[in-house]
Every structure is written in C-alpha cells, then in structure tokens.
Design a protein around this nucleic acid. Structure first.
Lengths: 337, 337
DNA sequence: ACTTAGCACTTAGGGACACCGAGTGCTAAC
DNA sequence: GTTAGCACTCGGTGTCCCTAAGTGCTAAGT
C-alpha cells in the first residue's frame, strides 16, 4: 500500500474524471493507466483515499470522483507547469502586440484567456496604490464649466467635467493649475487629498471657491484611479459547462456582474510558489462560488493586479494554470513598454 | 364565431401561458377568464387560431401555446401601455438622479432596467453622428509625448496619449490648438477628417509632422465617438430563465458579449406607433436569437440610440414594454440636463 | 506484508407496461 | 352560432424488473 502509488491513483482519478465527466472505477483505471497492479489493489487504495476525504463515491455502486480536497492535493502535487505550445504562444503575442491603450490591452487579454481556457476570464485593472501624479489639466469649456484631467504615472487618464461656483478665466485656471501641479509633483495618488487641502489655503481669495471645487474633482479622479475595476469575457463558456454546476449558473453570473465579490476574491488570493494560485470550490468564501474554482496570478511590475479565470471545480487545472501564467507573463511584458 | 372574441381568447392564452409556463387548455381558460361561453366554443375558436398559425399544440392532447406570430398579434393588439406604479417611478427617478457622468448614467440605467424587467438590459451609447466638436486640448506630457483630448457637444470626452515625431514646446501646441479649434468650430464629428486635412496645409513647416500626428489622433478619437458601444446588465436573469430557452443560453450570451450582433439588432429596430418596438423570436435575423425577444426604444433628443431588454419569447410583454418606455423617458430627461 | 482472484452485494439507469388525466375534435342537439 | 356529450390521443407517472458497473470482503498467493 505504497504512498506514492496512492497519489498516482488520485492523479489518475482526477485526470480521468476531468475529461470523462463520469465517476471513475477501479477497473477502468487500471485499463487506461498502466499502473502495474490489479483492480483489487486499486480498490484498496481508493478506500484509503476516500477515508482521507480526497475522493468520494456519489452512489454506493458508482466510481469515485475527487472532492475539493482531492483537487487541492492534486494541484499541490503538480510540480511543473507545461509550457504552452508554440502556436499558443504565437497567438498570445500577436494578439497582445496590436493593442493600443490599457483598456484595449486588458480587453484583448481577457478575450484571449477565455478562449485559451474555455472559461470565464477576468482581469483586474492595475492596482495604482503607489502610482504618482504625472499631470493635471484644467480646460475651460464654458464660463463656469471646467474639464478636469488627471494623468497618473501609469499612463491612466481620468477626466470629468464639473461646474464651478463662479465664472473663471483661462488665466485663473492656468494659475491654479501651476499652483496645484507644484504641490502635487511626485505625490502618490493616495496622498493627493492631504497635499491639496494644504495648498488650498495659499490660493487667492477670489478663487477659493473654484479651487475647492477643482480639488474635490481631483480627489474623485484619484479615487477612480484607486478604485478597483475589472474586465471579463467568456461568460458563454459558463453556459456550456452546465452540468458541471449542479445548480444553475445564475448565482455565478451574479457574482461576476457584481464585480465587488469577484474583486475581493481576487485580491485575497495569495501567490503560491509556482506563481499561480488556485481556489477550489468550497475554499471560496462566498457561497455562490462554492461550486467554482478560480485560477489566478498577479501581473505587472509588482504583480499586484490579478488576472485569471473562473470555472467549474471539475476543470483541467494543469493546462488552465499554464495558460493563466503564460498570459500574465505576456501581459506584464506588454505593459512594461 | 366572432372575431373579437377570438382575439380575446388569444390574449387570454398568452397571458396564462406567460405566467404558468404550461400549455393552456380550453377548460382552464373559461374558468380563469370569465368569457361568457363554454369550453367547447373556445375549442372551436382555438382551432381557428391554430389554423391561422397563432397558437400551436405541442402534443396532440395538450393545451396550446402561442407561436411567435401569436405573440406578435398580441403585442400589436396592445393599445395602451400601463403606466408604471408610483413606487417604480420613484425608484427610477432617485436612481437616475444621483448619476454623474454619462457612463454612470448608462450604467445605472441598465441595472435599473434589468431589475425592473428581470431580463437582460442593454443600452446603446448615444449615437453621435451629428454631435459637434466642442473643444480640443493638447497637453504636453514629455518633450515628444502629447495627450490629445476631444470633447463633443454631448459632453463625451475621449483622450489618448500619442508620441509625436519631434519634440514640441507648449507654445507650439497652443498655436496648433488654436489653429485646429478655429477650423473645427461647430464641425460635426463625422466631418472632422476633411476639415482637418485642409487645415494641415496652413501649418508652419517645422510643425507639419507633429500636426499630422495630432490630426491622426483626433480622427481616431472622433472615430471612437462615432463607434457604437453598449452596456448591459442582468445576464444572471438569463440563467434563471432556463427552460424558456430550449437549448442552452450559451449562444445568447455569446451574442451579447459579441456586442456587434446586439448593436446591429438594436439599430435595425424600427420605432412603432407606441414608441416601443418589439422583435419576437424568429423575427430576429440572427439564428442564435431565434428563441429570444427584444423590446427596445430610442432615447435622447432624436431617439437615435436604443435602450431595451432581451429575454425569452415567453415574457410579459405589456409590463416589459411599459418599463422600457418609462426608463427611456427618464433617461432622455436626465440627459437633457 | 502486500497483492490478487473470486464472490456476494448494492444501486443507478433504462426498458416495458399499465394507468390516469387533461385535452382534443367531432357530431348532434339546442 | 353555441353547447353537451363522447370517443380518442398521448404525455406523464408509477411499478416492476433487469442489467451493468462498481464495491467491500475474504481467502489464497507471493
């Protein structure tokens, strides 16, 4: 009753179940995998695996299927991730290279990843906690209407049109801009608020109201920058996987649409040694996702933003993990330019 | 065998079927709706309706369900749309009033509409064919890097960072801006290209390359503005309606995600007299949507952009149409400010 | 101390069958 | 033009039975 063989059996069960969708029995196992033992021996091993809670028999006389814990062990046991095929790598590269701004890049990334994995793909917008102010601009649109633009060092641009309490001139705006820009030079977006309120005091009295309005707008823009957002694609893949989700896919679609849940989930995921982290079924804290697994990894310079996929617990983890990792790497590379 | 009663019978069948989800028989009909005749008479009427292709019996001994054609007649017969309840109107108002920029407004609108109707809601970005240039701005970020901003009269702001062939100064940019702005004053976005190329000739030689790059950027921004986009919400409602879609909802999710299909569908929809247009099942030109109905209407000053919902053919048309119309009206009103 | 063959046991799934109920179309009377 | 009555159809459900796949256990083999 050797330990390594038991793991081998678990691996075989997971693999078979993942692509047959049916409980796998001892006999089928010895036939398909050339483990050098008889089905009886496998049965003994399976009894142990079941005792350890790694597999379970849906009915007394059926084969076994992996539990969440079983998948977990399987995933942890995975030592090396297969690199993607040349064709896949080429596909990634050509698709990502044509992209222009960051929205475009992320959009292409999710589409790509969802096609590659046949799952729902999600990508978090780069986390900008330590992004700095690169530029601010005020544009006079009408006597009391100003377009406020905030550009961060990550190249992200946010803008908003606001109405100021009293008419201003272009000169006023120019002056205020210089004023603010000086105060904000090199400030991180999170610090913007404190710096600006300090600055406010030094503004000429007749511009005080306008300046206050502008500061509010800038703060909001910085907030948008900091706020988490995500893009997703491939929800149709969920529908295709009906049958893997015992209940309906409704709750999952809701969770995806209510980005908050998904974002929290992503940010809670820890990188593991191989750089790809996996949350399996009940490991997910949110009830609606207890039948789903998430495979994700960080990308970008500090790997703080996540990119990954969501799918049924019964998924091809090795390939999925490889795809997620590869896409994340290419994404990081593209963003470096 | 009076004509009006037959229509009444059709109406009753549609109503019953819509909320029972089961084929409705002659006996059940006379019980639930106080038509003053016996079930035998209804059977005769139903035979005629079936002959006309308005209803169909799924099995020889089952009740009848409406065909797409039946729904169509039912919808056309609808003379007046019930106004929304006070509570609903209040909900719409409060939700929409808090909105800030146009993205926010549209986002709130779809969420609202999907909740109101329990369907997938979609809204097209305002069509900007005849929007005009309101303002352009060039911001120097680095010696050869310029942020190009284009603001249209609808308040939509698009921006992009480009690299220009040679370093420029703030003065150069200012000059170019004045130049362009003058040429573009009051130009519609669609005309922007021709106007700009004319302008290009009058630019000082040493700025020619830079100006060309800026023009290209502006053209692209105008293109983005013209390009159709849409927002959607409530895809989870699709999942809840499984069973109404004989096949899976996969193709429908795909169509939604592949916005192109949905956008073409929306723009093809004609306004009918009551201002709400309906496409029922097979009336949709796209195979994947032949089991779905779309209820939509225009909004905005010229009602050129569409807002609406997509759901199973078996839906509560009167209420849905009322909700769509009401939301479109509030949306138009909010956008007017 | 494992492994294996053999065997008794369990059970989901599927076919055969009968039955019930809802619903229809038709005919003849009103 | 409407109604009552009736024979007929057929989907759905429940029962029974059988089969195939799979298990756990025991006893023998290495």
């Amino acid at each position: 009753m050797s330990e390594p063989r038991r793991l081998e059996v678990l691996r075989a069960i997971v693999e078979d179940y993942v692509h047959s969708r049916e409980p796998v029995g001892s006999k089928a196992l010895v036939e398909r995998h050339h483990l050098g033992v008889s089905s009886a021996t496998i049965r003994n091993d399976m009894a142990v695996l079941e005792e350890e809670g790694l597999i379970v028999a849906p009915h007394t006389s059926a084969g076994r299927i992996p539990t969440d814990k079983g998948y977990r062990l399987f995933v942890d046991q995975l030592s090396d991730l297969r690199p993607l095929s040349a064709a896949e790598r080429r596909a990634i590269q050509t698709l990502l290279e044509g992209a222009e701004d960051i929205d475009d890049i992320l959009d292409r990334t999710v589409r790509l990843l969802s096609q590659l994995t046949n799952q729902v793909a999600v990508v978090q917008y780069p986390h900008l906690g330590n992004a700095k102010v690169r530029h601010i601009e005020f544009v006079l649109l009408a006597p009391a209407q100003v377009l406020v633009v905030l550009i961060s060092t990550t190249g992200r641009v946010e803008q908003r049109v606001i109405t100021v309490p009293a008419p201003v001139t272009e000169q006023d705006l120019h002056e205020l801009r210089q004023h603010f820009l000086q105060a904000l030079a090199g400030t991180t977006l999170t610090r913007i608020t404190s710096h600006l309120t300090d600055t406010l005091a030094t503004v000429p009295a007749h511009l005080r109201g306008t300046a206050a309005a502008l500061v509010r707008a800038l703060e909001q823009l910085a907030g948008i920058n900091r706020e988490d957002r995500m893009v997703m694609a491939g929800t149709a893949n969920l529908a295709r996987a009906t049958g893997d989700f015992p209940l309906t896919i409704g709750p999952i679609l809701e969770a995806l649409e209510e980005q908050v849940v998904m974002l929290r989930l992503l940010s809670e995921m820890e990188q593991d040694a191989r750089g790809v982290s996996v949350r399996i079924g009940s490991e997910n804290p949110y009830g609606s996702l207890s039948e789903a697994s998430v495979v994700a990894t960080g990308y970008g310079p500090d790997a703080s933003a996540m990119v990954g996929i969501l799918g049924p617990t019964r998924m091809d983890y090795p390939n999925t993990m490889a795809a997620v990792r590869a896409v994340a790497r290419y994404l990081s590379r593209v963003l470096n330019n």
